[in-house]
Design a protein around this nucleic acid. Structure first.
Lengths: 212, 212
DNA sequence: GTCTATAGATTGATAGAC
DNA sequence: GTCTATCAATCTATAGAC
């Protein structure tokens, strides 16, 4: 025994295959529409094997959500830091957040499903915490920009944060369908979109005399 | 004339009860998680009665989506018209859209589910058309504002429309969870939110000298 | 139109061999 | 850990009486 060359993560190929298959299917069809049989088939294992590793369908789903949240959280811890001007920092933050969303569309889709409360509140709290955390980081960034007089002090920082975050979620959720409208030119270019959002927000949309 | 006191809609109480029950349950749990038995129980009719009136579960779902789209479409046909300045007209449009969404949260929830493509593309096209129609109305409104020199001409109208629409969807979808953050003050006041969005967008968020 | 009864398929989960 | 075989429950949908 002593388990010599053992990996603490024993390359448990089956569990990873099951998790990957489950994430894809849950994202595409939603929790209730996916059967364990379907997941097992897609992962190349037997149905009983899924239950052996994850106990119940609910627990498997919870593990999938946890995995997404964790990967997502690790990616945004140094977003928007640095000593650039606040316009650059907000652009950096927003662009990073959008890239993060687009880097795992399935995960984003599942978190959006959670936000709609389609499941009986299992992963919902975790998804809410993730959104709240990102939102508060952004609010803090904007507040600092106001203290440094780079951002208009009379604005509610949470309102500005709302406009920034909502644009990214909308890009992910609705842009695929708006892309076919001839009025939309930025649907296939996230970076250009982020720049457009920041430009528009910083300059404002009201026509002004060329003052200043 | 003619058609005296007749209703073409013969007050078919059962079908309406079924539709109402189905809309509520589908919105809360998603299509796959709801059984016909559950819908029939909630509507106060028998299971077979549901099949008699709607044929299949898919067709019932499609009818629910159609009903929501139709009610939604009727409500926005004169939004943003008038001869006010374009700031007022955009505020009017956006506030109306948000009120429309909040007036039927279940419907909005179902349309969001459609946008996530959880169903095999039945109502998805209709939901996409509705969003596209509203979006294009808004784009046109903004373009006219640019022609009248009330809105900065160098902006992409679709970008401005994106910021406006996304804010409303975000308010509906994510605000309930953000409401618990102490940084957010407008979560329970849609009208105040709409004003804040328009204010922020028109003035821009960059600090400027008090010029002009 | 509304119901009861039922058919036939599929589901989540378990038992037990290997 | 992995499998086959199986259970009981639930599902969509239909048949047929009233």
């Amino acid at each position: 025994m002593i388990k010599a060359t053992v990996n603490h993560q024993p390359c448990n190929c089956a569990t990873e295959a099951i998790l990957a298959a489950a994430e894809e299917l849950f994202a595409q069809q939603g929790f209730a529409a996916v059967s364990i049989r379907e997941i097992a088939l897609s992962a190349g294992v037997s149905k009983a094997n899924v239950f052996h590793h994850f106990g119940t369908k609910d627990q498997l789903y919870k593990r999938v959500i946890q995995q997404i949240i964790q990967a997502s959280t690790e990616l945004l811890d140094e977003l928007g830091e640095g000593d650039d001007d606040y316009r650059s920092r907000l652009l950096h933050f927003n662009r990073g957040q959008l890239q993060n969303i687009l880097s795992n569309p399935q995960g984003a889709c599942l978190l959006l499903q959670e936000s709609l409360a389609l499941r009986s509140g299992h992963g919902q709290q975790m998804a809410a915490d993730l959104l709240g955390k990102q939102f508060n980081r952004l609010v803090k960034l904007i507040s600092k920009g106001q203290q440094q007089s780079e951002i208009r002090a009379s604005l509610d920082p949470a309102m500005v944060a709302t406009l920034l975050v909502s644009a990214n979620l909308f890009f992910f959720d609705a842009m695929p369908v708006l892309a076919h409208l001839d009025t939309v030119s930025f649907a296939d270019n996230p970076d250009k979109f982020s720049e457009g959002v920041i430009d528009t927000l910083f300059q404002g949309i009201a026509a002004r005399e060329t003052g200043s």
